[in-house]
Amino acid sequence: MTHAPAHDPLPLDPRDAPVPRYGSGSLADVLPAALAGLEVAAPGTGLVLPPADRVCLFLVDGLGWELLRAHPGEAPFLSSLLPGSRAGDGAPITSGFPATTATSLASVGTGLAPAAHGLAGYKVLDPDTGETMNQLRWEPWTEPAAWQPHPTLFQAAHAAGVATSQVTAPHFEHTPLTRVALSGGTFLGRLDAGERMDLAACRLAAADRALVYTYYAELDGAGHRFGVDSDAWRGQLAHVDGLARRLAEQLPPRSVLYITGDHGMVDVPSTEDARFDFDEDWELRAGVARLGGEGRARHLYAVPGAAPDVYAVWREVLAGHAWVATRDEAVELGWFGPPGTPLAARVRQRIGDVVVAMTGDSAVVAGVTEPKESALIGMHGSVTPAEQLVPLLEVRT
């Protein structure tokens, strides 16, 4: 299949793509800035947050800045914390690239950009096996400590004497992603999200110095399945708003609650001009040995010697729909970390020979080899504001 638009748009210049604000306003900067007030050693950051003795981070999967601002009726409490509201003084931060859960959670938990922690996408090449690895599901399995060897900030806080807890769903306790990104201190599993809010508040109150992380996944699930323009998604946002209020109202003295997301989301129309199907398009398949990433952010691992041709063809086929960069370009431009950040060999080989970041509402799907992912309505991963910008809302006592 080929795509022949009525007019011939020029390929997008990757130098024009928005770049995450690593080091000053990204997810990787939140905990280092918060832990500075607890006198816990953490990676340096230009983000400054007022100190508090008790810190709670509530991460809502799929809570994008633009989506939140567009739905004040469903989220009156969260909207009251936005800039321009009576109480709000927060501003958006960026997720990091790709804007996807595994990458973002690793950035949150380690305080490092993807260039350093190495979870550089939804699916990336495992150089040791030559196969793509799903870093969210950790399939096929590989040794977590070798894949992501850096300690977490929760481990650092616990070692510094801060009462540290993760309060989330029980099935996350022993996952490799939790181990490499969120482990340290005490894990407390609760199925009911309301109980998680109550327990998080109790853990804050139980110590003079505390760090508590809690998480809610279902907003993201509703967006993927039904789209962010659905009643199901709006209902989930209203539920999140109630959970945030419930937690905020129970904060003990000298506490701060930060509410953020790991990425935003866009709905991708089920039309041929929006969904480029890798499995059906011989031009896109030519020279590609492995397809990584996800619909909105792709890693392309080329057959030896074919990378220049793959780069040229994808730029032409996706002209007007994507920023297409070589690995070196993407790294130098600051997609995976601050420009000039050196990449360890273990990380460099995970990044595609060619990296693709979609714009607008387009995606590169793979209908045969990735049937479940290709059927999703809501998608994320790219560098657009709809996916990159997430809130950093604050409640203090």
Rank of each mutant, 00 (worst) to 15 (best):
S255N: 09
L105G: 07
R327E: 09
Y216E: 14
G84H: 08
P144L: 09
A363C: 03
S230N: 06
A322G: 13
R290M: 08
L300E: 13
L12Q: 06
D8M: 09
P149E: 09
R298A: 12
A322M: 13
A345W: 10
A106L: 05
D61Y: 11
D126T: 04
E316P: 02
E143S: 01
G44L: 12
S165R: 01
G185R: 10
V48L: 01
G334Q: 08
G62H: 07
Y215Q: 07
T101S: 12
A106N: 12
V355E: 08
L136N: 02
D8S: 13
R348Y: 10
T260E: 10
L333K: 05
Q166P: 00
W65G: 00
A36R: 11
C56N: 00
R315C: 14
G62V: 12
A34P: 02
P308G: 13
D128F: 12
T100M: 12
A200M: 07
G185K: 13
P342I: 04
H3E: 09
G235Y: 15
V355T: 04
T103A: 11
M358R: 08
L27V: 03
L188I: 15
G109M: 03
P170M: 08
P43I: 05
E195F: 08
M265A: 08
G23T: 12
D328P: 06
A375M: 13
A91N: 04
K372R: 11
P385S: 04
T186I: 08
S374Y: 03
D8Q: 13
E218D: 14
L78D: 00
G111M: 07
P371L: 07
